[in-house]
Amino acid sequence: MESREFVIPFSGLKIGSHRFDFKVDNSFFESFDYQDFNSSKIDVEAQLTKTSTMMELELEANGQVNVDCDVTGEPFDMPTAGKLHLVVKFGEEYDDLDDELLIIPHGESQLNIAQYVYEMLVLAVPQKRVHPGIEDGSLKSEVLDKLKELKPKEEKNNNDIDPRWDDLKKLLTDK
């Protein structure tokens, strides 16, 4: 992805630490053809520390994404946060095979961090997305009502258990 928004021009920066702030919304994820979020509003802070031979990049993100609950399908806002540390060195050719080390060619003057921001944010959101109202009981939903209705009934007492199970339990204790 070639987004000018997420480019850090480092060639004119003095040695030391520099801060860059970025805003991420759904158009950012759509540019990667990622459509799992209904909406998103995330602030990303990039701290670039430049030395004479290399750079270190610290990314930190905080915000929320609106996703559909995996249980009920109800949309909800899920808080999200992520961190990423990246060492940037200069070399003969571009190499990003290592997750924590980026090698860029000598003579480069800027760094596009869009791919790193994207990966950090997508990985920060859990695979299983459950509405917080399910856990605390505050969500009222037809889907939840139906799930409760279809839930297997618990045994009232041990007298209702099929006596064949008792014979099988004896096999466990007879050794």
Rank of each mutant, 00 (worst) to 15 (best):
residue 150 L to E: 13
residue 33 D to A: 14
residue 164 R to D: 14
residue 129 R to F: 04
residue 36 D to T: 11
residue 79 P to Q: 13
residue 105 P to F: 04
residue 94 Y to S: 00
residue 99 D to M: 03
residue 157 N to G: 12
residue 103 I to E: 07
residue 41 K to N: 14
residue 60 E to G: 05
residue 125 V to W: 01
residue 24 V to Q: 01
residue 18 H to F: 05
residue 5 E to I: 12
residue 68 D to H: 11
residue 55 M to C: 04
residue 1 M to Q: 11
residue 94 Y to H: 09
residue 74 E to M: 11
residue 170 K to P: 08
residue 62 N to T: 11
residue 158 N to H: 10
residue 105 P to V: 01
residue 50 K to G: 00
residue 42 I to C: 09
residue 55 M to K: 00
residue 150 L to A: 14
residue 163 P to M: 07
residue 106 H to Q: 14
residue 87 V to T: 15
residue 62 N to R: 14
residue 24 V to H: 04
residue 85 H to F: 05
residue 39 S to M: 09
residue 127 Q to C: 07
residue 92 E to V: 10
residue 160 D to M: 13
residue 98 D to L: 02
residue 109 S to E: 13
residue 132 P to W: 03
residue 29 F to S: 05
residue 41 K to T: 12
residue 40 S to H: 06
residue 118 Y to Q: 05
residue 154 E to H: 05
residue 104 I to P: 02
residue 94 Y to E: 01
residue 35 Q to A: 11
residue 89 K to N: 08
residue 88 V to T: 00
residue 73 G to D: 05
residue 124 A to T: 03
residue 77 D to G: 10
residue 49 T to L: 10
residue 36 D to N: 15
residue 118 Y to A: 02
residue 124 A to C: 05
residue 111 L to N: 06
residue 95 D to Q: 03
residue 13 L to A: 02
residue 60 E to V: 09
residue 113 I to T: 01
residue 19 R to M: 12
residue 29 F to I: 08
residue 61 A to P: 06
residue 121 L to I: 13
residue 76 F to K: 07
residue 106 H to M: 13
residue 170 K to F: 02
residue 86 L to S: 01
residue 139 L to E: 01
residue 127 Q to F: 10
residue 108 E to D: 12
residue 155 E to H: 07
residue 171 L to A: 11
residue 134 I to V: 13
residue 19 R to W: 05
residue 92 E to C: 03
residue 39 S to E: 15
residue 56 E to K: 15
residue 141 S to D: 08
residue 3 S to P: 06
residue 152 P to L: 10
residue 141 S to N: 14
residue 111 L to S: 03
residue 64 Q to V: 11
residue 126 P to K: 07
residue 99 D to L: 05
residue 60 E to H: 09
residue 147 L to V: 08
residue 167 D to M: 12
residue 98 D to K: 09
residue 32 F to R: 08
residue 142 E to H: 11
residue 71 V to L: 12
residue 22 F to K: 01
residue 142 E to W: 00
residue 121 L to V: 02
residue 72 T to K: 07
residue 105 P to A: 06
residue 127 Q to Y: 06
residue 16 G to Y: 00
residue 173 T to A: 11
residue 149 E to K: 14
residue 66 N to Q: 14
residue 26 N to T: 10
residue 27 S to H: 12
residue 45 E to Y: 01
residue 158 N to D: 15
residue 45 E to Q: 12
residue 135 E to T: 14
residue 57 L to V: 08
residue 124 A to L: 01
residue 107 G to H: 08
residue 156 K to G: 02
residue 135 E to C: 00
residue 3 S to R: 13
residue 148 K to Q: 14
residue 25 D to V: 04
residue 56 E to R: 13
residue 68 D to Q: 14
residue 172 L to R: 15
residue 89 K to I: 08
residue 35 Q to W: 02
residue 89 K to Q: 11
residue 128 K to C: 03
residue 111 L to K: 04
residue 140 K to C: 10
residue 148 K to V: 06
residue 172 L to M: 12
residue 83 K to V: 06
residue 161 I to W: 09
residue 133 G to V: 05
residue 137 G to Y: 03
residue 21 D to P: 10
residue 59 L to V: 03
residue 19 R to H: 10
residue 138 S to T: 15
residue 82 G to Q: 06
residue 129 R to K: 15
residue 137 G to A: 05
residue 23 K to R: 12
